[in-house]
Computed example of a mutant assay.
Amino acid sequence: MARMAGFALLLAGLAYPFAVYFGIEHLSPRVFAALLGALWCARLLSSGRSASRWTAGVALLFCLVLALLDNAILLRWYPVLINAAMLALFAGSLFVGMPVIERLARLQEPDLPPSGVRYTRQVTRVWVGFFIFNGSIATALTLWAPLAWWTLYNGLIAYGLMGLLFAGEWLIRQRVRSRL
């Protein structure tokens, strides 16, 4: 159930900017709130991790506000909210517990050497910078750009940048590992 909810949220996140662009004229924001709220409820009910529960709670609060106010302008704030949640998760992990990237690395390599721990901390910091940058662009586009620009960035360019960051980090990691 947790994987299905996570996969559905991933697909909804990818489709969201385009759904807003094409649906804003025909669908009430309450419909968006109900659909997103249902997905986040499923995620909340299926996840035992506190970070997932916290993120789901924030997203559900957003859905509630969207449903109550029924204001189409609020639809454009969802990518900003998701970036802020990811920023809080990654940045918070640098101060409390194990950094997010280290947790992911330990899934493949449980006995991560100290150099690997330092490297994963640096990569977590890079992701923090990415979420600051991406969230700032999403905020600026929400406030000042036409809907088409907002859709292009949040539906395509942001994911392209994320993919470049993943690929670039993977290439760097291969070079770092070969030196060890």
Rank of each mutant, 00 (worst) to 15 (best):
R121V: 14
L69R: 13
V80E: 03
P110I: 00
F32K: 03
A56D: 06
F95Y: 15
R121E: 08
P113Q: 06
T55G: 14
R43K: 13
G92C: 09
V96D: 12
W40Y: 15
G155N: 11
A85K: 00
W149K: 15
P99F: 01
A59N: 12
R30D: 02
R30G: 08
L81G: 12
I172F: 11
A51V: 14
P114A: 07
S46G: 15
A145R: 08
A59G: 07
L44S: 05
L27Y: 04
L143Y: 13
M4W: 14
L45M: 11
V123P: 01
G97T: 06
F95E: 05
A138V: 07
L81C: 12
L64E: 08
S115M: 10
L89P: 01
A51P: 09
L60G: 04
S178P: 00
A85V: 11
A42T: 04
L112A: 12
G23R: 02
A167T: 11
V126P: 06
L66N: 04
F32I: 02
L9V: 10
L112E: 09
A38T: 11
R179Y: 07
R3A: 13
L156E: 02
T151K: 03
N134Y: 03
R49I: 02
R121Y: 12
R125H: 07
L60C: 14
S47T: 13
A51D: 11
Y119M: 10
G6I: 03
Y119L: 10
R49H: 13
L161R: 04
W40A: 02
L112S: 06
I101F: 02
L44V: 03
L36C: 02
S115A: 12
F166M: 08
L161C: 10
Y21P: 00
G57C: 05
M86S: 10
M162L: 07
A84I: 03
G48S: 15
C63Y: 09
S46E: 05
R173V: 04
S50T: 13
L39D: 03
M162N: 04
H26Q: 05
A38F: 00
R125C: 10
S93D: 08
Y153D: 00
W77R: 01
G23C: 02
F130Y: 08
L81S: 05
W127R: 05
R76S: 08
L69W: 15
T151W: 01
R30F: 04
A51S: 14
I101V: 15
Q108G: 15
R125N: 08
W40I: 01
A56R: 09
V176K: 12
A167G: 11
Q108V: 02
F22A: 13
W150G: 02
L39H: 09
G92F: 00
S46P: 07
L61Q: 11
R3W: 15
E25W: 00
L27F: 15
Q122K: 14
I157G: 00
G97N: 11
A34N: 01
M1R: 15
L44D: 01
Y159G: 03
G163H: 10
V100G: 02
T124V: 09
A145P: 13
L165Y: 09
R118L: 12
L35W: 03
